[in-house]
Design a protein around this nucleic acid. Structure first.
Lengths: 190, 190
DNA sequence: GTCTATATGCAGATAGAC
DNA sequence: GTCTATCTGCATATAGAC
């Protein structure tokens, strides 16, 4: 795979740059020109790697979305509702911590939703699946609101620049605690 | 003031339309053409009421921001830290419920921040003030994370289309409960 | 107060040279 | 794989008629 290293590298740098700019200015507020300038290349060079801006948006969020999908699938296979919630929560928090800004992006940026709805990436089913697990069967309004607040709160707090200086373990434990409190789950050990 | 009723009405409709479109597509994803089309007027008519798009953005978020400012001010005048938190929380939740989509918008849309930073509206100081109250003195990381998650969770859950069908009282109580759990405040009565 | 018409610039996107 | 050059369209914004 060494032969394509150069290509992969530029592509990877491009996606990292795009994510950073998307986070700062939103997807619609980021132009291909901005991405190209930050990379030190021209717009046309960007178009060599991706045919459209939507393709870039998809490529930026795809890895995270796939991971979320697989976590939802795993959680659904747990037998007890409590275990489903715990699995979903731990997986989601871990995803947020490892990707930080990314999850906040696709939780709140309308540009992401717009880009994804064309090629149907299953973002909606992901989110619905996660929410179904977290609310449990026959949820009352308070529980539905709590689950929504948990997902949004964890994603946005995890991606917040104000909290970027915390190390992964600190952030992970704190976000887990947020989820446990909102969803009424006990702490793991004591 | 009957003389300016027509003007006020168009202006008000314009701001309501802008808020709806900003919520759906983000500030940067909304063009003046879209706003004009929804209103059934031309772009030039929109420019009669506002000189720039940034002015529209400011006018959309201004009332909510002013309210938040005053709530922060009130809360700061409470003597006990616990009472400060309770006042801040109740005021913020009430603001979210009464405006729904608006608070979610300026909590998460980078376009809003961009538009406000020119004419300095005090958004930053508002947010910092609120966060200072909610974290209290000498907060540990878990508390800072919890406060961030509370604000983001309440704002985004309150503005979520999935939860739009709940009546104000149900939503308010549920969001208050979210804040109380995350910030370790007891319920009001039992 | 709302219109038509228009200026200007930058967006996304393509063709083809190197 | 990256470039220059260019196209098309829509963005914000303005001037001035009605």
């Amino acid at each position: 795979m060494a032969a394509v290293a150069g290509h992969e590298d530029t592509r990877t740098r491009l996606l990292a740059t795009a994510l950073r700019l998307f986070t700062a200015h939103g997807v619609e507020g980021t132009s291909l020109q901005m991405i190209a300038d930050e990379l030190g290349v021209t717009k046309a060079a960007v178009y060599y790697h991706f045919k459209t801006k939507d393709e870039i948006t998809e490529a930026v969020v795809e890895p995270g979305l796939r991971e979320l999908e697989s976590i939802v699938g795993e959680a659904e296979r747990e037998r007890r509702p409590g275990a489903r919630i715990d699995h979903m929560l731990a997986g989601f928090v871990d995803l947020v911590v490892r990707h930080r800004a990314l999850v906040a992006l696709f939780s709140s940026d309308p540009g992401v939703a717009r880009a994804l709805e064309k090629h149907f990436f299953g973002k909606e089913s992901c989110m619905v699946g996660m929410m179904t697990i977290l609310t449990g069967p026959d949820p009352d309004p308070a529980r539905v609101v709590a689950a929504h607040a948990a997902v949004a709160g964890i994603a946005l707090a995890g991606g917040s620049p104000d909290l970027a200086h915390y190390d992964d373990d600190t952030l992970r434990e704190s976000l887990l605690e947020v989820g446990r409190k909102l969803l009424g789950r006990p702490r793991r050990r004591g």
